[in-house]
Structures are given as structure tokens and as C-alpha cells.
Amino acid sequence: MKTTKQIALGRVTSGYQYVADEVDPDKRHVVRVQWHVTDLPRSAVKQDLLFSLGSALSIFAPSKNHAISRLEELLATGIDPGQAPFQVAVKIPGAKSTILEEDDVDEPELHTDIVEVARDRISARIAEEFAGHELTALITAILEAEGFTCTMSPPGADGGIDIVAGRGVLGMDSPRVIVQVKSGGQTGDSVVRDLSGVVHTQGADQGLLVAWGGLSKQARGTVQSQQFRMRVWAAEDVVDAVMRVYENLPEDIRSRLPLKRVWMLAE
């Protein structure tokens, strides 16, 4: 989805239809679909399958690296199990036996969106290198690079507070921010409400929820009702923040997440 960068999954419920009375001529050619998931984060899908889903064709059939079974698993659980070891028996003319040939990755789309591919790879590296409490350390480094003074909670139970951030030498000047970091799947409404309560009891100005896997529909509604008190960073927002302050991040983080800026001709 171009607007949210999320992925929608559904099942086709009818064959092709031509809707003659549709006002918009671009919407007269129809294949009806029942959508089951409309907010799957790109971070939930591994890179090889993202290549297939980024095909330049409107209708195509992904066939390699167990794409269909993986899409079924994503539809059911929201988790991409990745490609399993898979080999195909190939008969060579004139040979006495068959050989095993590994299944290949689907080719990327004809006109690859280089920016999107780069961002997907950065996101994948962050998910791999900064899992769990390490993501909290990365967010702390980003906020410090933005000029905040931060106190990061140690691993384990944190009472809903992963980071306390504020301006000034002591970090006590406004805006004072309470940060909660979730590195797993979709974050539910209860986490949003808990963070809102902690922001109030701690006398903070704002709350920041880092929800790497995005928010549930109900949680998005709760955040929308508190948009002047709370912000959410999903995976896309974390990538944006990293790119914004990369030169000011600590050397050890830059060594674990090596990036370089590239200029290219705009097509």
C-alpha cells in the first residue's frame, strides 16, 4: 500500500468483471477480493518475498521459495517463516540419474524501486542486529543524537518505562518524554493505554511508543485520540530517524549498521 507502506492480504472471490457504469474508467476492470489483513508491516516479510510482492505486474503468480505457503502463514499468523531448504529433482538428457537443483529466488521487478529496496534492507538489518533490548539502546542513541538527555532502563521488568528523555543537562526540561519500546509483532491497545497512564503519573509532556511491528486497529484509534500527547514510531519511522541522525550516532552503532549515502539520477 503506497500510503502506509503496509501489505494487504486477501482472497479472490470472483473472476474478472467489466463494470460499465463505473464513472472512473480506471476502475471498470474488476477482480473482487475479500481482504483479511490490511495492515501487515513490511518488516514482517523477509527480503526475498518482498522482491516477489514488489513485482511491476498488476497480476502475477509468485512461485519460488515456497511463496504461496509463506503467504498463507503470513495471513494466518502475521509471521513469514522464510524459505525452507528446498531442492528439485532435474533429469539431465543422457544422464543415468537425476541431480538436485536448488530453487531460485524470484527475480526482482523489472523497474526496481531502489530506494524502497534499500530501506527494506536497512529495516531487516535493524531487526536482526537490534532485537529485544538492543532496540531500546538504538532508540536511546537516536534521541541523544536529537539533543535529548536520556535514562535507559535495564533489561527486564520496567514498569512501562524503557527510556526517560528530556532536554537540558539533567534531562528535566521540556519536552519530557516517556518512551516504551516493543520489538515484536503488532502492539495492542492495552500497551497504548498503559503508556498514556504512565505519561500522566510521571508528569511527562509526551509519550513515544516504538512499535516495530505496527499497531492493531484498536490501538491506532486510541493513538489518534491522543495525537497531541503521544507519537508512534513503527519500523519505517525508526529507519527515517536513523537516516536523519546517522552521522551523530555512536561509532559502535554505526559499525553494526553500516550505511553510506548515494546520489543517483532521479528518473
Score class of each variant (00 low, 15 high):
Met1Cys: 10
Lys2Phe: 06
Lys2Ile: 04
Thr4Ala: 14
Gln6Asn: 12
Ile7Glu: 10
Ile7Lys: 07
Gly10Phe: 02
Thr13Asn: 04
Gln17Asp: 11
Val19Ser: 06
Val19Thr: 00
Val19Tyr: 00
Ala20Val: 15
Ala20Lys: 14
Glu22Val: 04
Lys27Gln: 15
Lys27Arg: 15
Arg28Trp: 05
His29Ile: 05
Val31Pro: 01
Val31Asp: 02
Trp35Pro: 01
His36Gly: 00
Val37Met: 12
Asp39Met: 01
Leu40Val: 03
Ser43Thr: 14
Ala44Thr: 06
Leu49Ile: 05
Ser52Thr: 13
Ser52Asp: 13
Gly54Pro: 02
Ile59Ser: 08
Ser63Phe: 02
Asn65Leu: 13
Ser69Asn: 07
Leu71Ile: 15
Glu72Tyr: 09
Leu74Asp: 10
Ala76Ile: 03
Ala76Met: 02
Gly82Phe: 11
Ala84Gly: 08
Gln87Ser: 15
Val88Trp: 04
Lys96Trp: 01
Ser97Phe: 01
Glu102Asn: 04
Asp104Ile: 15
Pro108Tyr: 03
His111Asp: 11
Ile114Ser: 09
Glu116Ser: 10
Ala131Leu: 09
Glu134Asn: 10
Ala137Thr: 10
Ala141Cys: 02
Ile142Lys: 03
Thr151Phe: 00
Pro154Ser: 13
Asp158Trp: 02
Gly159Val: 06
Gly160Pro: 09
Val164Leu: 10
Ala165Phe: 07
Val169Phe: 14
Leu170Arg: 14
Gly171Trp: 02
Gly171Lys: 01
Ser174Pro: 11
Ser174Trp: 00
Pro175Leu: 03
Val177Asn: 00
Val179Lys: 04
Ser183Arg: 12
Asp189Pro: 12
Arg193Gly: 00
Asp194Trp: 07
Gln202Tyr: 11
Asp205Thr: 02
Asp205Asn: 14
Gln206Phe: 14
Gln206Ala: 05
Gly207Tyr: 04
Leu208Thr: 06
Val210Arg: 07
Val210Ser: 03
Gly213Ala: 13
Ser216Met: 07
Arg220Met: 15
Thr222Tyr: 03
Thr222Ile: 14
Thr222Ala: 10
Gln227Asn: 14
Gln227Leu: 10
Phe228Glu: 15
Arg231Lys: 10
Trp233Gly: 07
Glu236Thr: 14
Glu236Asp: 15
Pro250Trp: 03
Glu251Asp: 13
Arg256Glu: 08
Arg256Asp: 07
Leu259Ser: 13
Leu259Ile: 09
Arg261Val: 15
Trp263Ala: 12
